[in-house]
Measured scan of single mutants.
Amino acid sequence: KELVLALYDYQEKSPREVTMKKGDILTLLNSTNKDWWKVEVNGRQGFVPAAYVKKL
């Protein structure tokens, strides 16, 4: 599985998104969309802005 690092805090704005804190390590589930990547964090799956994370 591929991991990404949260570069910034992000507060979810819809049920399809997830909240993350700067420094969190997230599991990358899908990065086919250039703007929104699907990740898993704390057992929850959802989208975060691709610009807010970096592949490890």
Rank of each mutant, 00 (worst) to 15 (best):
K54M: 15
L3A: 07
K55Y: 11
D24H: 05
E40Q: 09
K22G: 05
K54D: 07
V48S: 00
Q11R: 12
D9Q: 04
T32R: 12
K54F: 12
E2H: 12
E17V: 05
K1V: 14
W37E: 01
D9A: 08
S14I: 05
N33K: 07
L5W: 08
D35W: 15
G46A: 04
G46N: 01
V48I: 09
W37A: 05
D9Y: 05
G43T: 05
G43Y: 06
V39T: 01
S31H: 11
Q11G: 08
R44P: 01
G23F: 05
L56S: 04
K54A: 13
V41H: 15
W37M: 04
D24P: 00
V41L: 15
D35C: 12
L3S: 08
V48D: 00
K34Q: 14
K38S: 08
K38F: 15
P15Q: 10
A50M: 05
V18Y: 04
V4A: 13
R16D: 12
A50P: 04
N42G: 14
N30K: 07
Y52A: 09
T27F: 13
Q45H: 09
G43K: 06
Y10W: 11
P15T: 11
G23L: 03
I25Y: 06
K1W: 15
R44M: 08
S14M: 08
E12P: 14
E17F: 07
A50G: 04
N30G: 07
K38V: 14
G46I: 04
A6M: 02
W36Q: 03
G23R: 02
V4H: 03
G23A: 03
A6C: 11
Q45V: 14
W36I: 03
M20F: 13
Y52K: 07
Q11Y: 15
E40M: 09
N42V: 07
K55Q: 09
V18I: 14
V4Y: 12
L7F: 04
K54N: 06
E12S: 15
L7K: 05
K55N: 08
T19Q: 05
D24Y: 05
Q45R: 12
W37C: 04
G23Y: 04
L3E: 08
Y52V: 07
V53Q: 00
I25E: 04
R44S: 06
G43E: 08
K13P: 05
T19A: 08
E40L: 09
L26I: 08
V41N: 14
L5S: 05
V39K: 00
N30H: 08
F47N: 04
T27Y: 13
T19R: 06
L28R: 01
K55C: 09
V53E: 00
I25H: 05
L26K: 00
